[in-house]
């Protein structure tokens, strides 16, 4: 079987990594800053491997690949909106 033709390979591989990065970056905006104003920078970075692992195992073990794809897309869009809003002069 050609692994590159497998949708699950692309979802668990590059898509999961990119989504984990986007979630981490988005958390810099929505995660509470804390008294030192650094929690929103440090904690998402510390949690990055965990975020990736959760997304990875979900994408790998979910039998309904379409559902996994839709969930990934929804999380991506949500964080992209937060990031765009931030950079275009929102919060």
């Amino acid at each position: 079987m050609n692994i590159l033709a497998s949708a699950r390979f692309w979802l668990t591989g590059p898509a999961t990594f990119l989504l984990a990065v986007i979630v981490m970056l988005g958390m810099a905006i929505w995660f509470p800053k804390g008294e030192a104003q650094v929690d929103n920078i440090v904690l998402p970075m510390v949690a990055f491997p965990l975020i990736w692992a959760i997304l990875f195992f979900y994408a790998y073990l979910e039998r309904n690949l379409k559902r996994a794809g839709w969930i990934f897309l929804a999380i991506t869009l949500l964080h992209m909106v937060i990031l765009l809003n931030h950079f275009l002069g929102g919060t």
Partner: peptide
């Protein structure tokens, strides 16, 4: 990290 103690630090 930061100037005062925090959960992140």
């Amino acid at each position: 990290v930061g100037t005062v103690p925090s959960l992140g630090a």
